[in-house]
Design a protein around this nucleic acid. Structure first.
Lengths: 207, 207
DNA sequence: GTCTATAAGGGGATAGAC
DNA sequence: GTCTATCCCCTTATAGAC
C-alpha cells in the first residue's frame, strides 16, 4: 500500500498518510483539500502527488491498510476453534477494544468515509469488514451450537455486539476517567451478559 | 426551524429539506453542492436561498430538528419514574429501535456531520444528544440503585447500550429478512441481558 | 524530491430581471 | 417565487524549473 508514483522519501510518505488521517478524521474527506494536507506535512500541494496518484487512492489506502491491519492483528490475537468458547469470546472483546482505543481516527474514517469510496474500492473495503465481522459471528454461532451462548438471531446479535464494542471509539479519551484496562473489563462483562453467559471475572457457574 | 428568509412556499421548503437529507446522507455535507440540491428539488441554485440563509444553517436545521423530534417523541413514549423498571427499559428500547428504523438518513447525518457544524451549532446539537442519553442513563441508574439492573460503570453501560441500539440503522433494510417488530423484540432481549435482567418475554423471575 | 505556475472546472452566495 | 448571470474564491491535478 501507500503507493508511490516515484521513489520518494519514506519519511514524507508516512507524514502524508498521518496528516491525511488526522485531517480527514477531523473534517471529513470531502472537506479536506490536498493543500491542507500539504500544509500539515510542510510541502507544497504538487509534491503530494509523488506519494499518491490522487486523492481517492489516498483515502482508499488509509482505509484498506487499516482494515488489513485489523484483520492481521485479529488473526494473531485469536484463539483456535478448540479453545473454550468463553476464552474465545473474551479474547475477541479484549482485542477489539484495545485495538480500537488506540486508533480512533482510523476507525472513524473507516465508518464515515465508506460513501466517498469509488464502487470498486468500496467493495474491497466492505469485503474486509465482512471478514472481520464473521470472526465474531463464528464464535457466537459455535457458542450457540454448543449451548453456551444464547444468541437469538445470530446476525442481529453479531451486529449488535460489534456496534456496542466499536462505540468505545466515540467516547474514549486518553485523559478520561477510566483506564483502557478497566474499559476492557467492562466490555467483557457486557458482552458475556449480552449472550447470557457468566462474565469470566465473576464466576464460572452456569447462568 | 426550517428558517425562511422570506414568505416562500411551504411545499418547496419541505422538498429542499428532504432533498438535502437524502443527498447529505448519501454523499456527505461537504461533498454535496447547493447546485445538486437544487437540481434534486427542481429549481435553480439561487432559489434555495429563499429557504435557508446558507448551507451551514440548512445542515444545522436538519440535525436540530431531528434531535428535537427524537426528544419530543421519546418524552411521549416514556413511562413515569414510578413505573416498573423493566417496563421503563423495555419502552425505551422499543421506542429507540422503532424511531431509528424509520429515519436512517437523519440518524446517519446526526452522527456523521457533527464535525461539519460550526462550534455554536455543534454545542446546541450535542446538548440535545446528551439530554437523550441521560434519559436512558436515568433508567439504568434507577435500576442499579433498586438492585434490578447490574450496570457496572453507569456511563460505560449507557454509551454501550445506545451504541448497540443505534447500530440497527447501519444494517436495517425495509426489504430485509426481519420485520421491525422482530428486530425490536431481539434488541429488547439483548438490552435486558446486557444489564443482567431477565428479558420480559421470557420470564418475570429475578435473576 | 520539491518547488512554482497554471490549467480547467466547481464551489457558495448575490443581484436584478421577470 | 423563481430564474439567469455573475463574482470571486478554492479545488484537483499536471508541467516543467531547479
Amino acid at each position: 500500500m501507500a503507493r508511490k508514483t516515484g521513489s520518494s522519501g519514506e519519511k514524507t510518505a508516512q507524514a502524508v498518510r498521518k496528516a491525511a488521517i488526522n485531517l480527514i478524521a477531523q473534517h471529513g474527506y470531502a472537506a479536506v483539500s490536498m493543500r491542507q494536507i500539504a500544509r500539515e506535512v510542510g510541502v507544497q500541494a504538487g509534491a503530494l502527488y509523488l506519494y499518491t496518484p490522487d486523492k481517492q487512492t489516498l483515502l482508499f489506502d488509509i482505509m484498506s491498510v487499516h482494515m488489513e491491519e485489523l484483520l492481521a492483528a485479529a488473526e494473531r490475537a485469536f484463539l483456535p476453534g478448540d479453545a473454550p468458547l468463553s476464552d474465545r469470546l473474551e479474547a475477541f472483546v479484549r482485542f477489539h477494544i484495545s485495538h480500537h482505543i488506540g486508533r480512533q481516527a482510523e476507525v472513524f474514517i473507516s465508518y464515515m468515509e465508506l460513501r466517498n469510496l469509488e464502487p470498486e474500492n468500496f467493495n474491497a473495503v466492505e469485503a474486509l469488514r465482512r471478514r472481520y465481522e464473521d470472526m465474531l459471528g463464528k464464535i457466537l454461532s459455535d457458542g450457540a451450537r454448543a449451548g453456551v451462548f444464547a444468541t437469538g438471531d445470530l446476525r442481529v446479535s453479531t451486529m449488535a455486539m460489534i456496534a456496542m464494542l466499536t462505540g468505545v471509539s466515540t467516547w474514549f479519551s486518553e485523559t478520561g476517567r477510566l483506564t483502557p484496562a478497566a474499559i476492557e473489563d467492562h466490555y467483557v462483562e457486557l458482552a458475556f451478559r449480552m449472550v447470557g453467559a457468566p462474565p469470566p471475572a465473576l464466576s464460572q457457574a452456569a447462568e
